[in-house]
Simulated scan of single mutants.
Amino acid sequence: MTQIEESGPATGPGGPRAGGVPVIERMAAFRSRWPSEDGVAVFNRVYLAAVEAAERDRGGGGSGGREAATALGVRCAERYLSAVEAATAGGRVPECWHSLVRYRGHPGVRPVQFALSGLQAHVAHDLVLAVVDTCRTLGCAPADLEGQFEGVGDLLVSLEERVREDLTPGPELLVVADPLTHLLSCWHLERAREAAWTAARTLWGLRGFPSLAAEFRQRTDAGAGLVSRLLLTPCP
């Protein structure tokens, strides 16, 4: 849903747009680039399915609140897309996405781990910066976007549900694969969302202190990256 700079993508006729191309089209374009077992492809597949379902449910029409929610959602998605495009071009990616890109082909990492690692990076880093981007664009404060933040959170909940329903091994395998069971139970989306909201409000409060804001963004990225890496611990 943006990039690492302050500016972000715009919305326009034909649905949410990022960099002049609809977000859904950009995600769909990645499907043919990687094998299905590729770690980034796993996350992209479930993310795209969740976004497509949300777009169908959203329907036509719009209000100021809906436009703000769309803007926030697009900026969050653009953060992910920018990271993937940088990785594809051999460029530098945010630390939170580095492990998923680096270990995307690791044979000891399960698909559900790849997907949850991507979701962690997206919530703990991308969503934080997307809130600040949207506030700058719309000329508002985070408190004015709280409802829209919850709306984007609903999309993330549906994404997590798809991850756990489609990619989690059956109960009999989870009993055997105890390390995987432990990993899956250690990460909670709701706690990650709460932390993201606090981080976004803090970063917005630091906007008058550029050096502190830059350091906070870096620490947020590093912290998100640490958890994302732990979620990719190989399981026998």
Rank of each mutant, 00 (worst) to 15 (best):
G108Y: 01
E150R: 13
S32F: 08
P16M: 15
A87K: 06
W204V: 05
L127T: 02
A68I: 01
I4C: 07
A28Q: 13
G64Y: 09
A41M: 15
H98P: 02
V132S: 00
G147F: 14
N44I: 15
G64P: 09
A141P: 03
W204G: 05
A130M: 10
R162Y: 08
C76R: 08
A143C: 04
G62E: 10
H98E: 09
R79Y: 12
V101C: 03
H106S: 06
Q148C: 11
T233C: 01
S228C: 10
G61D: 07
S211C: 02
L138P: 04
P35W: 12
P107K: 08
E165T: 12
V101R: 01
G65E: 15
A54G: 15
A224C: 03
T202F: 12
L145E: 02
T137V: 13
E190V: 11
A29F: 10
Q3W: 08
A28F: 09
G90L: 02
R33M: 13
A10V: 13
V128P: 08
C135P: 05
S117G: 04
P234Y: 01
V40S: 02
V132Q: 04
L100M: 08
R45T: 15
A77R: 01
D166T: 05
R33C: 09
R219F: 15
A196F: 04
V51H: 00
A83T: 05
G61E: 01
V21Q: 12
R110T: 01
S63G: 14
T233Q: 00
E215V: 15
P13N: 07
R217M: 11
A196E: 03
Q120T: 15
A86P: 12
G39T: 01
T134K: 02
H182F: 11
W197K: 11
R79W: 09
L174F: 07
R191W: 05
L230Y: 03
R193N: 05
G8A: 06
V101G: 04
L230M: 15
A143L: 09
A69D: 04
T181Q: 06
T70P: 03
E67S: 14
L226W: 10
G14A: 12
G91T: 05
H125C: 13
A124G: 03
S117P: 00
C235R: 01
R219H: 11
I24A: 14
G139S: 03
L145Y: 07
P16T: 05
V163T: 14
A213R: 03
V93F: 07
S158T: 12
Q113M: 05
P94C: 03
R136L: 15
E172F: 11
L167T: 01
R92N: 06
P35E: 08
P13D: 11
R58A: 14
G105I: 02
L189Q: 04
L48C: 04
A18Q: 13
C140E: 08
V84A: 07
R136N: 11
T11P: 10
A18Y: 14
T168Q: 05
L231Y: 02
E165N: 15
T11I: 13
R58E: 06
Q120L: 13
Q3C: 11
W97K: 06
S32W: 00
L180T: 03
S158I: 06
G170H: 09
S82P: 01
V84R: 01
E146A: 12
